[in-house]
């Protein structure tokens, strides 16, 4: 499949055509759980992108050395190592963000975007294409989380990136920062994205 399409396609597809959240429906747990604010969306998105890129590149390099029978175990160890690294880095340099993301950073280990991309792409393609694929998917995921976080923060708290932007007479809709609001936002955005895709 890699030979038919130009390399840039593998980078771009993650943003819209094969967006991990709206099209592949992967990584819904962090999407719903950490998007109460836009800052959390960025933090989670970039941490996932970091792990995704490194894991995918490493796997695409060593894929021929790993026997098929133990590949899942090997991939898990590789992903877990990079996640722990990301977690330590956030704890050291962004303690506040690390605190607000809580257990969701260590949970990137079981984020199905990473496993999904490794199994579907990196295990069959070379390191350069895997890098582009991981970068595209990671950034697509990050942008989606920022959009969800912005909508929920704006409606639920009246702020954007912690700065009050809606006038004081706006009464924040509490439901938007609760899990219910996450499902509302996710459903609505997915409906919009599907409607746009059907048109084109």
């Amino acid at each position: 499949m890699s030979s038919k399409k130009p390399a840039i396609y593998h980078f771009l597809k993650g943003f819209w055509e094969e967006n991990p959240v709206f099209v592949q429906i992967l990584g819904t747990c962090p999407t719903l759980a950490v998007t109460a604010t836009a800052v959390n969306g960025i933090g989670m998105g970039l941490a996932t992108t970091f792990v995704l890129i490194l894991s995918c590149v490493v796997v695409s390099i060593i894929k021929n050395l790993i026997p098929n029978e133990v590949r899942i175990g090997v991939y898990t160890v590789i992903i877990a190592a990079f996640v722990t690294l990301a977690d330590l880095f956030l704890k050291a340099y962004f303690p506040d963000l690390s605190k607000s993301l809580g257990p969701f950073v260590p949970l990137i280990v079981v984020n199905c975007i990473i496993f999904g991309r490794i199994e579907a792409f990196s295990a069959k393609n070379n390191a350069w294409l895997s890098f582009l694929d991981a970068l595209g998917n990671g950034l697509g995921f990050t942008i989606t989380l920022i959009i969800m976080g912005s909508i929920r923060e704006l409606l639920g708290k009246g702020t954007w990136f912690g700065i009050p932007v809606l006038l004081s007479f706006y009464k924040p809709m509490l439901v938007m920062i609760l899990p219910t609001g996450a499902f509302f936002t996710y459903g609505t955005l997915m409906a919009i994205s599907n409607a746009l895709k059907q048109k084109s």
């Binding site: 160890v77 590789i78 690294l85």
Partner: peptide, 21 residues
Amino acid sequence: RMIVSLTVVTVLAGLALAFCY
């Protein structure tokens, strides 16, 4: 091969993490 590849990957990951920690 299964034992060797799992062991090597795990040991390398462990060393890398200890170093970063």
